[in-house]
């Protein structure tokens, strides 16, 4: 039976853009000019997705579970290239760069093919799905992710949750046990209900742009995060990608000087669905 189906659909199963005709491809753009590094998105993510708060000790030993994190980088002073990196961090007056980093939902995700049990795969709406129930915890995906945004449950963190706090868990999201990998889902539970709502309202295969917000986007005080459907020509995120001349399927973007869009590690050819807008700074100040 499986063989019959295989022979009938052979050419389709051999094509590499299997989801070319799907109506959705969720994408994001993050404006680093607007990001203040406040961490509201991180907090919102903890609340929305039932992330365990691991405490100081586990955080120090590298077991923290923040799906979204604010990476902080310090610039080397440009006028003095001889200064070494340790000293460079001693220039707080210049301020830091902040980079909110979460799963980039790569279209050519390196984490997907290495899973021995097929616990992670690509959904028709271009999400990089993680099936918690199927995961056996080989952690190969975590190694192969160049962004290191996959988080492993090294302990059963929910055992330590004091009594009334289990009431604040989000009922739409699984609570993960020890030994499995997890990561940002682009708030897949919200995507699900938005799609259902659109279907109920009679919009087939079309979620109105702006009706669907991810938790991080919703809580960002400067509205640095934009989320939407990259296959919808009128969506804000698609227009953002276009105006900054960032294209899918191109890892060397050929663009004018004054646009700021880029994707992290484009040269690795993993096709991330998140575009960042570079921060512009006055280096003379």
């Amino acid at each position: 039976m499986a063989l019959k189906r295989m022979l009938e659909n052979w050419s389709r199963l051999r094509q590499h853009d299997y989801y070319a005709d799907e109506p959705y491809m969720w994408g994001m753009s993050i404006d680093l000019n607007k990001c203040t590094g406040c961490g509201a998105c991180v907090t919102a993510c903890y609340a929305e997705n039932n992330l365990p708060v691991v405490g100081k000790e586990h955080c120090g030993s590298g077991h923290s579970m923040h799906w979204m994190r604010i990476e902080r980088f310090w610039t080397e002073p440009e006028d003095n290239p001889d200064v070494d990196i340790e000293e460079a961090t001693d220039h707080p007056e210049r301020g830091a760069h902040y980079l909110p980093m979460m799963c980039q939902q790569c279209n050519h995700a390196p984490c997907e093919p290495v899973c021995p049990v097929a616990a992670t795969y690509h959904t028709p709406d271009a999400l990089n799905a993680q099936v918690y129930n199927r995961c056996v915890g080989s952690r190969y995906c975590g190694n192969n992710c160049p962004f290191k945004v996959r988080y492993f449950n090294f302990f059963d963190f929910w055992n330590e949750l004091p009594h009334p706090l289990e009431m604040q868990l989000n009922p739409d999201v699984t609570v993960r046990s020890k030994g499995i990998m997890e990561k940002c889902t682009f708030c897949v539970q919200r995507i699900r209900s938005a799609k259902d709502a659109a279907e109920d309202a009679g919009h087939h295969d079309h979620v109105e742009d702006g009706t669907l917000l991810t938790a991080c986007q919703q809580s960002c005080p400067t509205q640095a995060i934009v989320f939407g459907n990259l296959k919808d020509e009128d969506s804000k995120v698609k227009r953002g990608w276009e105006s900054h001349q960032v294209e899918l399927e191109h890892f060397e973007q050929d663009k004018s000087e004054d646009v700021r869009g880029y994707r992290v590690f484009e040269e690795l050819n993993v096709e991330p669905c998140v575009m960042y807008l570079d921060r512009v700074r006055d280096t003379e100040a």
């Binding site: 030993s61 590298g62 290191k148 996959r150 492993f152 090294f154 030994g179």
Partner: peptide, 12 residues
Amino acid sequence: GLGTALMNRPHY
């Protein structure tokens, strides 16, 4: 849990 073996992120 595997955390007792002192592996962590990125040392999966």
